[in-house]
């Protein structure tokens, strides 16, 4: 039988709380109390003094990990290719952004780094410097034992040139330090409620984000061997423990059949108000566990 999922939570889930009604200590407490074993963060959001946290902050970080028995999972970072208006970033600068975050992630104990590359068009094609920049830091990532995993995120589906390029890179270099991170928002098959005001009207890309891009979960089987981490993106789980946007009852059996035994890291992205996320994350952690248990009790044949 394939392994079990590992359960984690991203501090990003608490974006509407963090910094105003929630600090790092409270975030750890909410995450650990779900029974999760892993914590995911955004470097530039959750690390005081990023990218060079002071010693007092580092001491506190490791104390909190020990106290709550959490392990660092994935650190999110950005390669801001449009840092200068009207100017591209060089390969050297791109590699330096990656190196900065690889070193910080390693210092904090992370095993995965999600770099988000700037894009050049409406199809969200990453700036072509991504490949040579990543190639320059593969040895460093290997030395630091970190897997860099860009996210496959709505509106980019699994079957898309961007994903094909990433897989081609993995095959060409033979690296074990670059892989795919799947954001489960790609499986969204029903519209988000209350998001219309967030995005420009009449924009076709915005419509995709509202309505979902309906990737068939079965498509995961074709890329499973390249997947290192899953952000369990969700937007709303109602009072009957029913997710109104992401079809978990279809997604979880596919992940199990694929033999996925990595992290499911809760990533709540819903109402733009504080005090909502804490219980939403608890609901999702319960829902995912129930579905995994149900599958294990009666596996569905492929």
């Amino acid at each position: 039988m394939a392994g079990q999922f590992k359960y984690g939570v991203s501090l990003y889930s608490f974006t509407e709380d963090f910094g105003s009604v929630m600090g790092l200590e409270e975030g750890f407490d909410h995450i650990a109390d779900t029974g999760a074993t892993g914590i995911e963060i955004l470097g530039a959001t959750h690390v005081t003094g990023y990218p060079e946290p002071p010693k007092a902050w580092l001491d506190r970080w490791f104390d909190l990990l020990d106290w709550h028995r959490l392990e660092p999972t994935n650190m999110c970072s950005w390669v801001d290719t449009k840092l200068r208006l009207g100017c591209s970033m060089t390969i050297e600068e791109g590699a330096a952004e990656l190196e900065r975050d690889l070193r910080l992630a390693h210092r904090l104990g992370f095993k995965f780094l999600r770099p988000k590359f700037g894009v050049i068009d409406q199809d969200l094609t990453p700036d072509p410097i991504w490949a040579p920049a990543v190639e320059r830091v593969l040895d460093l990532a290997h030395k630091l034992d970190i897997v860099m995993n860009p996210e496959i995120h709505s509106p980019t589906p699994i079957n898309h040139p961007v994903v094909h390029e990433y897989i081609h890179f993995i095959e060409r270099t033979g690296t074990k330090n670059f892989a795919l991170l799947i954001d489960t928002g790609i499986f969204q098959d029903r519209p988000l409620r209350g998001w219309q005001h967030e995005l420009p009207e009449g924009d076709s890309e915005a419509a995709k984000i509202i309505n979902g891009i309906h990737v068939d979960p079965e498509e995961f089987l074709g890329i499973a061997q390249y997947v290192s981490f899953i952000q369990a993106k969700f937007h709303y789980i109602n009072d009957d423990l029913h997710d109104e946007n992401i079809p978990w009852d279809k997604v979880i059996p596919v992940l199990k059949r694929a033999g996925y035994a990595g992290y499911l890291s809760s990533e709540y992205e819903g109402a733009r108000e504080p005090w909502v996320a804490i219980d939403q994350v608890r609901r999702q952690q319960l829902l995912l566990r129930q579905l995994e248990q149900a599958y294990d009790a009666a596996p569905v044949a492929a």
Binding site: W78, D80, K82, L83, K116, F117, G118, V119, P200, D203
Partner: peptide, 11 residues
């Protein structure tokens, strides 16, 4: 705010 990972028309 310019977010380099957003499509160019949203920056």
């Amino acid at each position: 705010v310019r977010s380099p990972y957003f499509p160019p028309h949203l920056q």
